[in-house]
Design a protein around this nucleic acid. Structure first.
Lengths: 240, 240
DNA sequence: GTCATTGTTGATCAATTGGTCAAGTTTTGT
DNA sequence: ACAAAACTTGACCAATTGATCAACAATGAC
């Protein structure tokens, strides 16, 4: 990472909307009717960039490698995204929708057990289907969320607050044991993302070559059993 | 990250023992009676390096910055550690003991409830006291565990297998509900490390300025309540 | 004290990096 | 067909990087 990169990051408060897309039609960027070629190439760049950022982090990812994996030259990549940081922001922006959507769907009117089970399923499915997206997101947060801090403190915080209310309502109705809804959500996030982010550790500990479907199925079964029924046996009274 | 760095990493199988410490007495490296100065400077380097690696990852960490934070010149740092990779390995090696120890202590003869509770407390305490260590470890795993893969597949896998046996024995004795011990351990790992690794997200969602003691206390209480007693209320029969 | 060992650093190097530019080629609207 | 817009790239640049080296300073055993 160059000193300049570091400075850009420290300055915080980077708008995710003002995508640093390069030239563009220059005159008409409001509606921006993106050409077919542009759409295809931006997608190829973001796909390649997501892989490289996941493997090496922002600083370790080189524009050259991203361009190569996207099948184009470096200057051509810079034609679509002026700076490496712009590519990174675009990748993160794309990831956010994948990450946000499942929680959004938690329905207060439905049965909490099936709603939470569905949420856990969706999050595990996201980890299974988008492991590199999960890793890019995780690395961004671990390194202080220089780009996403506004998103975390704004939209995400409000969303979680709303869903915490839903969980608290379920508790008030006697449908759930009283627990802190925030820490419940943290636990679900952590446990589900673990299978994408820490895949090498999961593989090594389980002694398998890849985290296949079966592992995710068992993970879902175990996690749901754990969260809903707990570890304490039902038929035993607490001894001494 | 330079191409050379990438190659070193890809070659895998890096012994953590053969610490790439620089010159050393040259003649007598077997017992290596490390001078006071050497011990003090190596510690300063590893402390500084752990912070920088946690903030920027391996590739983003510059030797210059590590040296500056350690209060010495870059050539002086290289006197103690020949290559950046050697510093990184030494940092990881130091972290491993912090990470390994708590699980080691799980005592099969004792009550599973109190043993698991103690384990969760120790892991949360490690996250609270060594957040940067947690982040360096997490980033290493997320990026494919290039250095730690042998440790994960060897010592860690064996340790977890032993402790899974302990948990299975508890289950066989009817002291725990039947769950997959591996996924239980994964869940505990994920949930406890979350408060160190994803601290910016936790802070933002909770709307607080730092993850203080109180948060860890509530996290421990919530997590233990969740894992032991689950979400399902005890006094309600499962309706349709 | 003395001198070999250990510790320290400014100056420097080669490699890689993010990013630019001018000069091209292709696509598109008409 | 043809011009304007969109797209593409080899060559290049300045900055930063990890690492080395020769020269110098401090330490410690005797």
């Amino acid at each position: 990472m160059t000193k300049a990169d570091a400075r850009l990051f420290e300055s915080g408060a980077v708008s995710l909307d003002s995508a640093g897309r390069a030239p563009a039609p220059m005159a008409l960027q409001k509606d921006a009717p993106k050409s077919r070629i542009r759409r295809r190439n931006e997608a190829k760049i973001l796909d390649a960039a997501q892989d490289v950022f996941a493997e090496r982090g922002f600083a370790g990812a080189s524009v050259d490698e991203i361009a190569a994996r996207a099948g184009m030259s470096k200057p051509n990549l810079h034609y679509y995204y002026r700076r490496k940081k712009d590519v990174y922001q675009a990748v993160l922006l794309r990831i956010l929708t994948i990450w946000l959507d499942p929680l959004e769907e938690l329905n207060p009117a439905a049965d909490p057990q099936s709603e939470l089970r569905r949420y856990i399923h969706l999050k595990l499915d996201a980890s299974r289907r988008h492991p590199t997206a999960s890793r890019v997101f995780a690395t961004e947060i671990i390194q202080g969320a220089p780009i996403l801090q506004d998103y975390l403190a704004g939209p995400l915080r409000r969303l979680v607050a709303r869903k915490a209310d839903v969980i608290n309502a379920w508790i008030a109705q006697g449908k759930l044991r009283p627990i802190d809804p925030y820490h419940l959500i943290f636990t679900i996030w952590a446990a589900t993302q673990h299978y994408a982010d820490f895949a090498p550790q999961v593989r090594a500990v389980l002694g398998i070559d890849d985290v296949s479907e079966g592992v995710f199925d068992r993970a879902e079964e175990s996690l749901c059993g754990l969260l809903f029924d707990g570890l304490t046996p039902r038929t035993s009274e607490p001894g001494d």
